[in-house]
């Protein structure tokens, strides 16, 4: 006996009772899914923005904490002014160097033989 698989399937399909599909129900459920999809998209966007903001804030604070002050103050000392070191005011006017209260006149200190270069350190061969 030879059965055509096509005829077999068509006979089976033709015998089945076709149900009525409620278009309103299908559309309502489709709208529900679209609504859920929109809400999910909005929530995902909000979550992404929140992650970026929080991540940026945390990264900024961690970076700020890691640097810290270069010269940390000593918390054990009550008088911070003890650590202040005073230095003499030093500046030059013309050939005179002012160093605190004293002055050094370079003109009087000049070598009468003239300026010396590093060559005066070389040994003479002649």
């Amino acid at each position: 006996m030879t059965n055509s698989i096509r005829d077999l399937l068509r006979q089976d399909a033709d015998r089945v009772e076709i149900p009525t599909v409620d278009a309103g129900e299908v559309i309502a459920q489709g709208e529900q899914r679209l609504h859920r999809r929109r809400i999910t998209a909005v929530l995902a966007s909000v979550a992404a923005v929140a992650v970026i903001v929080v991540g940026g804030t945390v990264a900024g604070s961690v970076q700020h904490q890691s640097e810290g002050p270069v010269d940390k103050p000593n918390e054990n000392k009550t008088n911070q002014t003890d650590d202040v070191q005073t230095r003499r005011l030093t500046y030059a006017v013309g050939s005179t160097i002012n160093w605190g209260g004293s002055t050094i006149d370079l003109a009087s200190e000049q070598d009468p033989a003239g300026p010396r270069g590093p060559w005066h350190l070389l040994p003479r061969r002649w």
């Binding site: 089976d12 399909a13 459920q29």
Partner: peptide, 30 residues
């Protein structure tokens, strides 16, 4: 009707084919 017959031949159950068709139509609507 045509789509239901296909669904019925694939799953072999009337109720299941109905659910399958409805699910597929919802996805199509989306």
């Amino acid at each position: 009707a045509t789509l239901f017959r296909t669904a019925y031949l694939i799953v072999g159950d009337h109720q299941l084919a109905q659910d399958l068709l409805q699910e597929s139509l919802i996805k199509t609507y989306v």
